[in-house]
Computed example of a mutant assay.
Amino acid sequence: MPEFGGLFGGGPGPWGPPPAGPWPFGRGGPPWAKGPGGRGARARKGNVRAAVLALLTEEPRNGYQIIQEINERSGGGWKPSPGAIYPALQQLADEGLIRGEEAGGRRTFHLTDEGRAYVAEHAEELDEPWAEMAPDFGEGVPDLFKQAAQTGAAVMQIVHSGSPGQVAQAKDVLAEARRRLYLILAEDDPGPTDAPEE
């Protein structure tokens, strides 16, 4: 699982290593990045192959970019490991569907003419293969989780760098936020409203 700081852009961050405990304040991943049994979703080989080809159809990418793009497009539901991506890239290169070029210290992969022909023949199979791995959440929920993660990062900065007075203020802010969240649930949801017609 990613370290705490990795959820907010990579690395432990300026506030030091993550503490033990549940996400978002400790180790472990966000709930939308977990599959059955609490572990990250595992991609099948066919999915990896299709995702690589689909992304390289758009533009050349290196292995790291492919991993990050799959993770983003699946809403965090699928982040294949380098151990899944790089063998797939090698296999596709061996088949002549892609080629790798060294640039800026990274190996960037492109579709070959044969690869473009293959993609055209298998368009349905390669249509957003990451979609089936995406978690089924309601509208706006991933953004809500993102806000919770960012709040967790701010809390950890106060934990590691704040004065006793700042820690006390943060505690009050969180208590008020929790109270207001429960009030939202207690209210009737009016839903979207349309502006009155003139």
Score class of each variant (00 low, 15 high):
residue 136 D to C: 12
residue 136 D to Q: 11
residue 136 D to V: 14
residue 137 F to L: 07
residue 138 G to I: 06
residue 138 G to S: 09
residue 138 G to N: 04
residue 138 G to D: 09
residue 138 G to F: 13
residue 139 E to W: 02
residue 139 E to Y: 05
residue 139 E to I: 02
residue 139 E to M: 01
residue 140 G to L: 11
residue 140 G to S: 06
residue 140 G to E: 04
residue 140 G to N: 06
residue 140 G to A: 08
residue 140 G to P: 04
residue 141 V to M: 05
residue 141 V to F: 08
residue 141 V to E: 03
residue 141 V to R: 06
residue 142 P to I: 00
residue 142 P to A: 03
residue 143 D to C: 10
residue 143 D to E: 10
residue 143 D to K: 14
residue 143 D to Q: 14
residue 143 D to I: 12
residue 143 D to H: 13
residue 144 L to P: 03
residue 144 L to D: 13
residue 144 L to A: 09
residue 145 F to K: 00
residue 145 F to Y: 09
residue 145 F to A: 00
residue 145 F to N: 00
residue 146 K to P: 00
residue 146 K to I: 06
residue 146 K to C: 03
residue 146 K to G: 01
residue 147 Q to Y: 15
residue 147 Q to K: 15
residue 149 A to I: 03
residue 149 A to P: 01
residue 150 Q to V: 03
residue 150 Q to F: 05
residue 151 T to D: 02
residue 151 T to Q: 02
residue 152 G to L: 00
residue 152 G to K: 00
residue 152 G to D: 05
residue 152 G to V: 01
residue 153 A to L: 14
residue 153 A to G: 15
residue 154 A to Q: 03
residue 154 A to N: 01
residue 155 V to T: 09
residue 157 Q to E: 09
residue 157 Q to S: 08
residue 157 Q to Y: 02
residue 158 I to R: 07
residue 158 I to T: 09
residue 159 V to N: 01
residue 159 V to E: 00
residue 160 H to M: 13
residue 160 H to Q: 15
residue 160 H to S: 14
residue 160 H to Y: 06
residue 161 S to G: 12
residue 161 S to C: 14
residue 161 S to K: 12
residue 161 S to Q: 14
residue 162 G to S: 07
residue 162 G to P: 05
residue 162 G to L: 02
residue 163 S to L: 10
residue 163 S to P: 06
residue 163 S to G: 04
residue 163 S to M: 07
residue 164 P to N: 08
residue 164 P to W: 09
residue 164 P to Q: 02
residue 164 P to V: 09
residue 164 P to D: 01
residue 165 G to K: 13
residue 166 Q to D: 10
residue 166 Q to L: 05
residue 167 V to D: 01
residue 167 V to F: 10
residue 167 V to L: 13
residue 168 A to V: 06
residue 168 A to L: 07
residue 168 A to G: 08
residue 168 A to N: 03
residue 168 A to P: 09
residue 169 Q to P: 03
residue 169 Q to A: 13
residue 171 K to S: 12
residue 171 K to A: 15
residue 171 K to R: 15
residue 171 K to M: 12
residue 172 D to E: 15
residue 172 D to M: 04
residue 172 D to N: 08
residue 173 V to M: 07
residue 173 V to L: 07
residue 174 L to I: 02
residue 174 L to M: 09
residue 175 A to C: 11
residue 175 A to G: 07
residue 175 A to K: 10
residue 176 E to H: 08
residue 177 A to R: 02
residue 177 A to L: 08
residue 177 A to Q: 06
residue 177 A to I: 01
residue 177 A to H: 12
residue 177 A to P: 04
residue 178 R to K: 08
residue 178 R to I: 12
residue 178 R to L: 08
residue 178 R to Y: 08
residue 179 R to L: 01
residue 180 R to S: 00
residue 180 R to V: 00
residue 180 R to L: 01
residue 181 L to V: 12
residue 181 L to N: 07
residue 182 Y to R: 14
residue 183 L to S: 14
residue 184 I to Q: 02
residue 184 I to K: 05
residue 185 L to F: 10
residue 185 L to Y: 06
residue 187 E to W: 12
residue 188 D to K: 14
residue 188 D to T: 13
residue 189 D to F: 09
residue 189 D to R: 15
residue 189 D to I: 15
residue 190 P to G: 09
residue 190 P to W: 00
residue 190 P to Q: 08
residue 191 G to S: 05
residue 191 G to V: 07
residue 192 P to R: 13
residue 192 P to H: 07
residue 192 P to A: 02
residue 192 P to L: 03
residue 193 T to F: 03
residue 193 T to V: 08
